[in-house]
Design a protein around this nucleic acid. Structure first.
Lengths: 225, 225
DNA sequence: ACCTGAACACCGTTCAAGT
DNA sequence: ACCTGAACACCGTTCAAGT
């Protein structure tokens, strides 16, 4: 038996530890450090930007030594991949909510999804830049990442197919139609967070109205003849 | 007179220096160092990515000490701004070429511009990520950058207006129509370089066909009733 | 004017060591 | 099992000094 049994430092919310038990000598930090690092990294990422996110700052924020994160992530890139993966999951969740909100109405689903996509990007710009911004390798180094993206894209294709089956959308290459829809909304979202639109526009841009206009155009293009 | 006159190291292409003139003792590096740094930085940027571009590596590539770039750029960010600025200028140039290639045919101009945009992004992905990727501040810290973007966007709006005046495109908010067109193509371009499309698509994607399909959809949306 | 080298505070990463 | 501190090679940036 050469297994070291670490001191218990995780406390359940309901139980109290006996106060008299002589406070342990600064026990190892604990309590799902993996998740805490991920959260702290996300926070720091959105507070500044990808370029200035440091592993050491993350560790400091969580309150552990700067080498502790290596117990949970192979390297900095792995941590970034973890953050990006959560982003894709959130994206899928938003898509699914949009579908559930308007059952049997693919047109409304698509419009809702568009608005939610723009909102999600606006609220997590740095995370999105990480997901699509050329920092992470786009080859198959991290297959989980592509899988997460695939799931979201499949959900989008399902909306298109449902619309075709309901006679709302024209027949045609589902892949292409989904890609076309994604491109419009993705482009709009990224132009918005990059500051390209608010600055170039002569008048201040109303994001919501702009999004509506673009999804409407999009839907016109998908309409059944 | 306390002005130091540096040894001449710039050689014009047409004149020869007398070979006998005893080679100067390793003269200061020279010959538009500003431009050389910019070019080297662009090369290194596209070879890897923004995150791993270092000022010291740029200096090394050019063959000067690691502090020399500070004579020409306030800091690393200023260098990045310089690169991004060149990207916007190139974008405008491509737009203008597309216009000149199809005089009096806004529809063809827009289609051509779309293909050129996708191509430019595909050939300079890291530079584009720099232009739109949230590394550079999007507030008014670098007004030159916004101006460069404005010029490109204005060129796009001109195409739309010309199309309206020629009766090819429907009447409507020019700003909005231009933004809509830009969003589609921008989104497609970025999804392509991020690797999101080739991986998610069940079949390998033909970029050119995809671009054509999207610009066609775009043009349908702009068509005069 | 333009360039250099030493110096500083920061990184990411590794590794032997501690509990 | 999980965490630490020292160590290494790299950064960006500043500054006195050289030509």
């Amino acid at each position: 038996m050469d297994v070291y049994d670490p001191p218990m430092t995780v406390q359940t919310a309901t139980e109290k530890r006996p106060a008299a038990e002589q406070s342990p000598p600064k026990p190892y930090h604990h309590g799902d450090l993996h998740r805490q690092i991920l959260c702290a990294a996300r926070d720091l990422l959105e507070e500044n930007n990808i370029a200035s996110l440091s592993l050491r700052a993350v560790a400091k924020k969580v309150g552990v030594s700067h080498t502790a994160p290596y117990r949970h992530f192979k390297d900095k890139e792995s941590l970034l991949v973890g953050i990006a993966g959560e982003g894709f999951k959130e994206m899928t969740a938003q898509l699914n909510e949009a579908v559930e909100l308007h059952p049997d109405n693919p047109r409304a689903q698509l419009q809702e999804a568009g608005h939610r996509y723009v909102k999600l990007v606006a609220e997590n710009p740095q995370c999105v830049q990480l997901m699509f911004g050329g920092i992470l390798p786009c080859d198959d180094t991290y297959p989980e990442l592509h899988e997460s993206g695939d799931i979201a894209f499949t959900a989008l294709k399902t909306i298109i197919e449902d619309g075709q089956n309901a006679g709302m959308f024209k027949k045609g290459d589902v892949e292409l139609m989904a890609l076309s829809a994604w491109s419009s909304i993705h482009g709009l979202s990224l132009l918005l967070i990059s500051g390209s639109i608010n600055e170039t526009a002569s008048a201040p841009v109303e994001t919501h109205a702009l999004t509506t206009a673009i999804t409407v155009t999009l839907l016109e293009g998908l309409n059944a003849g």
